[in-house]
Simulated scan of single mutants.
Amino acid sequence: MGRNVTRRTVVSVDLGAVPSTRQKRDELAAEEPLEIRLRKQPLAVTMRTPGHDIDLAMGFLLSEGVIGKADDVLTAQLCAGTDTPNTYNVVDVVLDSHVPPPVTDPSRNFYTTSSCGVCGKASIDAVRTRSRFDVTGDAMRISARVLAGLPDKLRAAQRAFDRTGGLHAAGLFTAGGDLLVLREDVGRHNAVDKVIGWALREGRLPLAGHVLMVSGRASFELTQKAWMAGLPLLAAVSAPSTLAVDLAGEAGMTLVGFLREPRMNIYAGAQRVTF
């Protein structure tokens, strides 16, 4: 069994016609801290599901504006850390000499949790990172029928969720509805960072003409991460926040929420969805 899923003994309670209790082994989504370091100096700690940690670190650095392309990173490697036994919950990144170090700002707190990536940051201004990619001119079009089918495709590929019921998912799709990559994590922002990190390392940025589909709600932070990767369309099965809608409009992105076949709400950029 991989580190992303673990087993625990639980008491199962059934309050049906004949109430009963029994002990059983249950599978849970793993949650462990990951420390991201730059040249061995701590930068961020996030609570995540182990797996694809290099992609997570790379996606995080891109979405925070620390790097803009894969060549900005000389090396990125998992380190043993100080735990006994070694848990490899540290990623150490060495940037190329031309990349300026991130500016230290007391208003920013890079500690994040699995439930909310930017709760510790002091203000919206502190996280409104400008993307290097302009998506306003992205002329992609996607059929509403294709878009409506993405949640089922995302759900069908969630193998760890089938076992635990406790993981968010993010999937990168083509405009034709083909799934390119899916990542799962206890933190929805981590799942998105893992997808973006994969695309970064594969040399696919900017992700013009692609769709990012997420299993939860569309927050300000997820919208920002999509923008930073050059994605023209973010779709979510649940609701967006007001700040997410405002940011999507500002960036020229398309934002779709409550995407549950046969319905959806288009909150920004409706011109990219065809009927």
Rank of each mutant, 00 (worst) to 15 (best):
A248L: 09
A239D: 14
P151D: 02
S123I: 05
P102I: 05
R8D: 10
A244D: 00
T274P: 11
K24L: 13
T75S: 15
A156T: 03
L255R: 02
L212N: 00
E31Y: 06
T6K: 10
V211D: 01
L179Y: 08
I124Y: 06
V45S: 00
D83L: 03
T104F: 00
A235V: 01
G137P: 07
E64Y: 08
R188P: 07
R272C: 00
P262G: 06
E221P: 02
N89C: 00
L200M: 15
H98W: 09
L200Q: 08
L255C: 03
V93W: 05
D162C: 14
S20K: 10
F220V: 03
R37T: 00
D125C: 02
H52T: 05
T242P: 04
D138E: 11
G197V: 03
V10E: 00
Q158M: 15
N89R: 13
L222V: 12
R217W: 08
T49F: 00
W198Q: 09
I142F: 02
G176K: 13
C79Y: 05
L255P: 02
D96L: 07
T164H: 05
T75C: 09
S241R: 04
L61R: 13
I36P: 10
L207V: 01
R188C: 06
R201D: 12
M253I: 06
R217D: 04
V118Q: 01
G187S: 12
A144G: 13
H189C: 10
D125M: 09
D92M: 12
H98A: 12
R263D: 15
K121T: 08
A218I: 13
R201I: 03
